[in-house]
Amino acid sequence: MTTVHPPAHPPAHAEARPSRFSARTLWLTVAVVLVVLFSLAPILWQVLTSIKVNADIAAIPNVYFPRRFTLQHYIEIFNRRPFLNYMLNSFFVAFTSTLLCLALGTPAAYALARLRLPGERIVLASVLIVTLFPYILLFIGLLEIVRATGLANNYLALIIPYTAINIPLTILVMRSFFQQLPRDLEDSAKVDGYNTWQMLVRILLPLTTPALVTTGILAFIAAWNEFIFALTFITRESMKTIPVAVAQISGTAVFEIPYGALAAATVVGTLPLVILVLLFQRRIVQGLTAGAVKG
């Protein structure tokens, strides 16, 4: 049928729209604010606590918004304890394991995506199963291994397990990314005369940066926040990582819990992650949506 029907709704309707639209906007705003408050409240509370003076922290009733501000707690954690050192330790461990993850996981992902390997499905299935392993089971086994190999108080005792735990995620994410890169692109590079290494560095790597950054950040966050391994495998004070150090602050005083220092330490420990994510935000979004539309 090719008859032309007149529009069903006369345009007079349009006048009613603005008010309805603004009501919707209002609800949306309220909802967004509530959700943001709900998820950010703990962090906000930590930030506020870290800049309150001790009297306000202990005051009853609660002082929600302090009048007096102090940087005392921050100065304390950096002066009385080697907090900068902890941060560097954490950074070193997380950064190294992230690099290892990407360096080992990306070629594996490429192979799984592109080459027709015998037993490919089995490899993929086992990669998935590894991620399903209860963490605590791994921990007991690892403890034995660390003891047997004498790796205690060695960064390797953290770097190796972190890498191992994060590699499955790297492989799965990178593999799905490689799969949706057109195959012709690589063929065309080969015809142009790129050898495998040049193709990887000049064609594939620039195209995979978003995915690399995304998985890299996920791996980095996981390693930065890890607590149990770090607590058990590293006992030397100068080698401890941030999560352990933060936990220890509450353990040092018997009579009172140093909430201020604790909060300051938490903020300091979280800040690098926030900065990292903000820096790469644009790239992460690209990476997460890269699979959504055919490129």
Binding site: D184, L185, D187, S188, D192, Y194, N195, I203, G295
Partner: peptide, 30 residues
């Protein structure tokens, strides 16, 4: 021989241009 050593040029159905390079670099890369 590898494709790059055969002195052939190929046009693909999907064109397979390098998305991160400009047209000039695409033309120049080979």
């Amino acid at each position: 021989k590898a494709p790059g050593d055969r002195n052939i040029a190929m046009v693909f159905q999907s064109y397979a241009l390098y998305p991160h390079m400009t047209v000039y670099d695409n033309l120049a890369s080979g």
